[in-house]
Amino acid sequence: MSALHTSPLHADFYADRMVQHETVLEQNERIAEATYRLRVSAPAIASIAVPGQFVMIRLAGVDAPLIGRALAIWDVLPDQDGKPTYIDLIYLKKGTFTTACAESPLGTKVSLWGPLGNGFNARACDRLIMAVGGIGQTPMLLLGREAIGSQSFGRANGWAKQVELIYGARRESLLAGVPEFREAEFDVRLCTDDGSAGQQALVPDVLAARLDELSDPASIRVVTCGPEIMMEKVAEVCRERGVDCQVSMETPMACGIGICFSCVAKVKQDDGGWDYKRTCVEGPIFDADKIVW
Rank of each mutant, 00 (worst) to 15 (best):
E22P: 05
L106P: 01
D75P: 02
A184Q: 09
V40W: 10
G133R: 11
V292D: 14
A208F: 03
D216W: 04
L211V: 06
I220M: 02
L71R: 08
P284A: 00
R123W: 07
R17Y: 06
I229F: 00
R30L: 11
A288S: 00
Q53K: 07
R182F: 09
T99N: 15
V237T: 14
P8T: 07
A100F: 07
Q246Y: 08
I166Y: 08
W113T: 13
A208D: 14
G136V: 07
L112T: 13
G256S: 00
L9N: 12
A131I: 00
P284N: 04
K93R: 15
N157V: 05
A72L: 12
D244S: 11
K83S: 09
I135P: 04
Y14W: 15
K233F: 06
N157K: 07
A46R: 05
A131T: 02
N121A: 14
E33W: 14
E228V: 14
E250Q: 15
K93N: 13
G195W: 01
K161A: 02
W159V: 01
K161T: 11
G177P: 01
L202V: 10
A44T: 05
V267D: 12
V264L: 10
R58G: 07
G136P: 05
E180T: 00
G258F: 09
T138D: 05
V110T: 03
Q80N: 07
M253D: 09
C125S: 08
S173R: 13
C225Q: 12
D126I: 06
P284E: 10
D289Y: 11
G134P: 03
E22W: 09
